Computed example of a mutant assay.
Amino acid sequence: MSLFRGLQFLITVNDLKMLPNEGIEVAFAGRSNAGKSSAINTLANHTRLAFVSKTPGRTQHINYFDFGGERRLVDLPGYGYAEVPASVRAHWEKLLGQYLVERENLIGLVLIMDARRPLTERDWRMLEWFRPTGKPVHCLLTKADKLTNQEKIKTLRDVQAEFAGDPQITVQLFSSLKKQGVEETEKVVGRWFDAHRLPLGQEDGATDGE
């Protein structure tokens, strides 16, 4: 079974104090209309695992999904949608900033960006928060099916050029509609988890004294 196919919903939280203490996790973040929920659903081959709202910015909580083996996917609140009240935006930014900088369980960030409008001001802000941690970032340029082949090549090269010489950040094209890029995403996230695999006998919280 592929990495994402067994993904199951675990918990929803709206306060960092409520985050699970155990396990390691990969976070998915992106603008509210960048196709983040659709990407998660496509990777999991599940049409309604992550809720896709017709009103971008509706999801205001941190949603946890479980891969099994103390591995988690964290669906962070979408950001950057103009019609969200200022108080809600402020709450999201504080929540996201603290989570990205302080969360020790977090091993990597998948940054979702619309391939037609990548690297917006708020995307750069996310990277500014996260890059100092030294943890890897994988950028998914979603909705690639809406570009011509020439536009795809140019967009991918342009974004890759922004991070040239930075091994912390990788970039790929992705399309939920065409299911393009699923295997590549699985390989990247799988490597992150493999690099943080718990020692034999500790996967389920066991210790040498048990």
Rank of each mutant, 00 (worst) to 15 (best):
Y81S: 11
F67E: 04
V52C: 04
Q98W: 12
T155Q: 13
L173P: 06
E83R: 14
D114T: 00
H138W: 04
K152A: 06
E104W: 12
E151P: 13
W124M: 09
L141M: 06
E203Y: 07
D114C: 00
R58Y: 14
A29V: 14
V84T: 08
I169F: 07
A144D: 06
V84R: 08
N33T: 07
A164L: 01
A144P: 09
R131V: 10
L7T: 02
G201L: 01
S175C: 02
D194W: 08
E162S: 02
L76E: 01
I24C: 03
L173Y: 00
P77L: 11
F9Q: 04
V188K: 13
G108L: 03
G80L: 05
P167S: 13
A27H: 00
N21A: 09
E25S: 05
G30R: 10
D66W: 08
G181C: 10
E186Y: 12
V171E: 04
E183L: 13
L19A: 10
D123G: 09
V74Q: 08
E186W: 10
E25D: 06
Q202N: 10
E102I: 04
F193G: 05
G209C: 11
K54M: 03
Q172Y: 03
P167D: 14
A164M: 08
R72L: 10
D66R: 00
D208A: 13
L119S: 15
T12P: 02
K146R: 15
R48W: 00
G165V: 01
I24Y: 11
S53C: 01
Y79T: 02
L100S: 03
N41K: 11
L96N: 13
C139F: 13
T133F: 06
N41R: 00
R117Q: 07
N45I: 06
D75N: 11
K54I: 00
M1Y: 09
H46N: 11
E70V: 08
R116V: 11
P199H: 10
L177R: 01
Q202S: 15
D75I: 10
L127N: 02
G69I: 04
Q202P: 03
L76G: 08
R103V: 03
N45H: 03
F9S: 02
P132Y: 12
L141D: 06
F28H: 09
A27Q: 02
S38K: 09
N105M: 01
T170Y: 04
K17L: 05
K135G: 00
N149D: 15
F193N: 04
